[in-house]
Amino acid sequence: MNLRRMVVVAAFPVFLASCQDDASDDPAEPAVPQPSGSPVGDPVLPDFAPAPAVDVHTKNHGAGWQIEFSSVLVNVGEGEFRLVVDRPTVDDDWVVTQVITHSGGGIDEVPTDAEIEWGGDGHDHWHVRRVVTYRLVAIDGSGTPAPDGLTDAKVGFCIYDFGRELDDLGPDDPVFDRDGCQPEDALTLTMGLSSGWGDTYEWNLPGQSIDVTDLPDGPYRLWAEADESGHFVEATTDNNDTWVDLDLSTTDDGARTAVVAGVGPTPGESPRAD
């Protein structure tokens, strides 16, 4: 993978992430060929596994302090994750369908309740809402994370093959690209994530942050959870979350700092309960 841009700040080591840039000039043309035919054999399913956040650091945003972080969602399943999103006219609601291939050929088209949202983060294309949710929760004296906390404000995800994450899984070349997210007047979108590939977001993209201005010093866990609402079909949900543990503190001059104290499972690892 390659960085699309790098900005030097007082932070932890810089990771990779995806910039969701402008879409293609042809709003009616799907970004990738569509599979077809009646299903034969077993479904070949995708499997979401978010990576623990990296580049975690604090920043004064003028009205207070926030933590910023880079993230990546990986498909560790044998099958690709593919969404086809259609509407009859620009005045109609989107219909979001997950396309699942089968071992003997053919597809299933599975309706979903996933929501599609336009722009909102400076990127002029469509997004799928809340594909991954990031939540910061306090850790109590017994080491137990609280059930609730603060969530990120990310609009959504233009899902595509940004970088190869698992060398022994999936195609060598990307199948889905950013053009699948399409401009505002599009009638069809095609988004997806190939087996073994990841969709990566840098810390300096909109929404890759959580405000910590009013949080007290202490230990916290930054959760990353894929498909929190259960919109999509995948091989298992046992690996849909991971985390980074942080020590949040305040210096004598009022600056907030966050130091990584622990890291959860990475894509391809077996889930564990810490």
Rank of each mutant, 00 (worst) to 15 (best):
A53W: 09
L45G: 06
V74E: 06
T112Q: 10
V84I: 12
W223T: 00
G106K: 08
W118N: 01
L169S: 06
D121G: 09
G198D: 14
V175Y: 14
G218L: 07
D148L: 11
S142T: 14
S24V: 02
T242Q: 08
D22T: 09
P88T: 03
V72C: 09
D168K: 05
V14Y: 09
S24N: 11
V259N: 02
P267H: 04
W94S: 02
G105M: 09
G264M: 04
F176G: 02
R178F: 12
S229E: 14
D55G: 07
A186N: 06
F232Q: 00
T112R: 04
L193D: 08
A255W: 09
M1N: 04
V131E: 09
R135E: 15
A49W: 10
V74D: 03
G192E: 09
H61E: 13
D92Y: 03
R135I: 02
S71A: 14
A153L: 07
D211W: 09
G198I: 12
A114H: 04
S103C: 05
Q34W: 03
T200W: 14
P46Y: 04
L16K: 01
G120W: 11
A28D: 15
H125D: 12
L205T: 13
P39L: 13
V95Y: 08
V131M: 15
I139S: 06
G37H: 12
L16A: 03
V132W: 07
T213P: 02
V40S: 15
T89S: 14
D124S: 05
D253A: 10
T200V: 08
G192K: 07
T133D: 15
E78T: 02
L187Q: 14
G119S: 15
P27D: 07
A273K: 01
D185H: 12
Q34R: 14
P13Y: 10
G105S: 08
I159C: 01
L169K: 04
D124V: 00
A258P: 01
G143E: 11
T200Q: 13
R256P: 01
V233R: 08
T266S: 08
E269P: 00
G77I: 04
G192W: 10
G230R: 04
P219S: 08
G64M: 12
F48L: 12
D168A: 15
G105V: 10
A23K: 02
G120A: 12
T58C: 15
S36M: 11
S194L: 12
H127D: 13
C181W: 06
L189P: 02
D108I: 06
S195Y: 10
Q20C: 11
D26Q: 13
R178T: 04
L169Y: 05
D252H: 02
